[in-house]
Simulated scan of single mutants.
Amino acid sequence: MDTLHLPRPDFWRSLRRNETEKIGLVLYTHTPLSSRSSEYYFEIIRGAATTSESMGYNLVLYLTVGNQTDQLMNVCRSHEVDCLILMLGSGELDTPISLLLKEKVPFIVLNKHPRHLNVSYIVSDHENGAKSAVEHLFELGHKRIAYIGCDDDPETSGDRFAGYRQALASHDIALDESLVATASTRPMSAYQAMEKLLKQPQRPTAVFTYSDAWAVEALHAISDYGLVVPNDISLVGFDDLRAASATIPPLTTVRQNLTELGKQAVESLLQQLEDTSQPPIQRTIPTELIKRKSTASPALT
Rank of each mutant, 00 (worst) to 15 (best):
R17D: 12
V228F: 13
P230T: 10
I45N: 02
A190I: 10
N58H: 14
K293S: 12
T301K: 14
P106S: 10
V109I: 12
D151E: 11
R17T: 06
P32W: 10
P250F: 07
S37W: 06
A206Q: 03
R255M: 05
C150I: 00
Q166M: 14
T156W: 00
Q68M: 15
L175H: 11
V266Q: 01
T295S: 08
T205Y: 07
Y147N: 08
D239W: 04
D153W: 02
A183Y: 08
C83S: 15
G24H: 03
I290L: 01
D232W: 12
L63H: 11
H136L: 00
G262R: 01
D212L: 05
A213P: 00
Y62A: 10
V60E: 09
S124F: 00
D224P: 09
Q278D: 05
V26W: 10
D232M: 13
Q202H: 14
L235F: 10
S38E: 11
L273T: 05
R283D: 05
I248P: 02
V266F: 03
G141W: 06
P298E: 05
S35V: 15
L258W: 02
L61P: 04
Q282R: 13
D176P: 09
Y225I: 06
K102H: 15
T259I: 03
D172P: 01
A130H: 01
R16W: 06
P187I: 11
D239Q: 08
V81G: 07
E139I: 03
I44L: 04
K102C: 11
T253Q: 03
T29V: 13
M87K: 07
A48W: 02
D176F: 11
W214D: 02
L86F: 09
N128R: 12
R165W: 04
G141K: 08
Y62D: 07
R13F: 06
H220C: 08
R13A: 14
T185R: 11
A167E: 02
H113V: 00
E267Y: 04
V105R: 13
H220N: 13
T50A: 14
C150Y: 00
L117T: 05
H126R: 07
S37E: 08
K102I: 10
H126L: 05
L15A: 12
L15S: 09
L110F: 03
V65H: 10
I145H: 04
A181I: 02
L227G: 13
S268R: 03
S34Q: 09
A265Y: 00
A215H: 04
Q272C: 11
S297L: 05
H30L: 10
G24F: 02
M73T: 15
Y57D: 01
